[in-house]
Write a protein that binds this DNA or RNA. Structure first.
Lengths: 352, 352
DNA sequence: ATGAAAGCGCTAACAC
DNA sequence: GTGTTAGCGCTTTCAT
């Protein structure tokens, strides 16, 4: 139990025979300090195990921290509405601090919209950025700019490792596919086949969906035949018949849908076609997915937890900016398995 | 977007034509204030949507908050070691604040030890208490005392609703049993039987274990025969043979073990007896349970998350004491399902 | 390069 | 009852 409870800058100053101003300078490496004094202060700092009072620090430097958050339009997809809910909750949680959070929405179906939003964020000159960089190419420019301007950023949902952000928050997609495979193999019959369905609006996303697929394949391929299908155009008039064709395959025993929106789309087709025997594993606690889970059209959901991703992303950046806390450069969330019987316990839970 | 960002007590005072001292008095209901002035200030407070700066508040009232935490000895049971890990992490998280956390351990196998620990906690005169009240009877006295002395307390793991604590943190045990039933019914055969095994040191605990059991029964009883057994004396020389007798029952297809420690005990017996066909659902991420999960002796674990329970309990009380935040009177944790494929994602996760 | 001193918003002791 | 004021520990500006 270190006894640093009451060591203040003032104490350090006294021990080193200097003034608080000088101590402050060495702590924050700002400004000219004679080398010997510098050494001396650093020594005292170390010996006493000085820990700054973060409350006083933030109170003293009386400036508001501006954080900009970039996500797709929450009205276009419930997944992103959950993310927005995370922003809203953060707003509440940090309301007492001198913190300005602003949310910026871009068009999920129009990658060019990202650029214009990005520009307005740059104009804002925020102290930090939290973003879901779902448009790979368009993102590079923006985050390059941030780097140049020394504005720290945290990424979530989609990782762009080459940008090495302050922190990334997300899940291990490959392992997520393995979990899906594990769950399916619990509920289908030995000779069944498995279909993997990717239903996504953007091609950019497909690389991530493929990661899930290969996880699933690696887990089940010794026991089951797996076929995968890309169905990116939900609005295509042939979409439903195409899906039906796939689902009516007599050998088919299980379906893995790699996106949250795809999950309820496929579930309703299964229901319509009365294909109750086919087991379905999908993603996320969207309202429609929950209904299908209750009705038995979906057997398992894997929770990506967009709300908590957002919450944690903001929280990390805030702690960094406000309290100079450091954070893990990568935080992978647990792969939560949702069933009809445990779903309520997740919904009730404050951070589901 | 309320514009309360810059409203300080000083502003309120000016608007109400009084001094900061008086405003402070009405905010904290401490002391004599003329009724009309009181009303006036309250009105201004409401109209401006005043929100105190919590940083300044804690900094200004320069007093350390003492919190005592009561749990069973972490060395006696790994479950409680996880809880202790939660205490340790809290210590870190709150290290910057003026907070004194002290852990107090009682003997898991000796209910009378609780009383003596409790007494020493009372002598400490803490500002708040966080406790796992596993000894019902002995607890009543202690928490009654706390009530009398107006010391707030938060309970976790085991609820004693009649004490109505500031907050309770735990899980819905009945529903937890249902989840176990759901999982077992995924992996056993139609004509299998299910055994419920309660392996617990204290009789006090049995009422909670029964809650889990009835959840399981309600879920599976239309499809499977269920038999339950209480095996409280692990040290009994007949213990193993008794368990073996139960497990070797030819119709037996699945086992539900209602405690974390029981889980690995039964798992090793299953392994020894080479009863690989029997499926096992148990509790918690104890090291031994994880091993058995990897080796296939355990099929599913339900995570009660003692670490996070403890963490959240402390965090709630701290927020209450330090920042006057309110909290849910009951926080039920999600019923997390752990499998060989998602276990690592839980272990890695900061708060598993 | 260093020190002194005025804040940050709130609390609490003290004076009237 | 009400107002005044000296802190809390740190930051930051302004002299020196």
């Amino acid at each position: 139990m270190s006894d640093n409870k009451n060591i203040r800058i003032k104490d350090i100053a006294k021990m080193a025979g200097v003034s608080v101003g000088t101590v402050d300078r060495v702590i924050h490496k700002r400004g000219k300090v004679a080398e010997d004094i510098q050494k001396k202060i650093e020594k005292v700092l170390k010996e006493t195990g000085y820990k700054p009072n973060l409350l006083a620090r933030t109170l003293g430097s009386n400036k508001a921290v501006k954080i900009a958050i970039l996500i797709p339009d929450p009205d276009q997809d419930e997944y992103w509405a959950l993310s927005q809910a995370g922003i809203d909750q953060s707003l509440q949680e940090w309301s007492q601090y001198n913190l300005e959070l602003s949310a910026h929405h871009f068009d999920l179906y129009d990658s060019s919209s990202f650029a214009s939003i990005a520009q307005s964020v740059l104009d804002l000159q925020p102290d930090g950025v939290v973003a879901a960089p779902i448009f790979h190419h368009e993102s590079l420019d923006f985050f390059g700019q941030l780097k140049k301007q020394n504005i720290p950023f945290v990424l979530f949902n989609t990782n762009l490792t080459e940008l090495n952000p302050l922190s990334f928050i997300g899940q291990d997609l490959y392992q997520s596919g393995k979990v899906a495979g594990e769950l399916l193999s619990y509920c289908i019959e030995p000779d069944d086949q498995i279909a993997v369905l990717h239903i996504s609006e953007s091609i950019e996303n497909s690389v991530h969906l493929k990661a899930k697929e290969s996880g699933l394949r690696d887990f089940v391929q010794k026991d089951y035949l797996v076929q995968s299908h890309d169905l990116n155009n939900v609005d295509d008039p042939n979409f439903e018949t195409e899906v039906e064709r796939i689902l009516r395959e007599p050998e088919l025993g299980g379906v893995f849908v790699s996106t949250s929106k795809g999950t309820h789309i496929i579930a309703s087709i299964l229901e319509q076609c009365d294909l109750r025997h086919i087991k379905l594993v999908g993603y996320d606690l969207l309202a429609k997915n929950l209904e299908h889970l209750q009705r038995g059209n979906v057997n398992f959901l894997i929770n990506q937890n967009p709300k908590r991703m957002t919450l944690v992303g903001i929280s990390h950046l805030t702690n960094y900016l406000l309290f100079h806390k450091d954070m893990p450069s990568k935080e992978l969330f647990p792969l939560e398995i949702i069933t009809p019987q445990n779903v309520d316990s997740y919904i009730q839970s404050r951070i589901h």
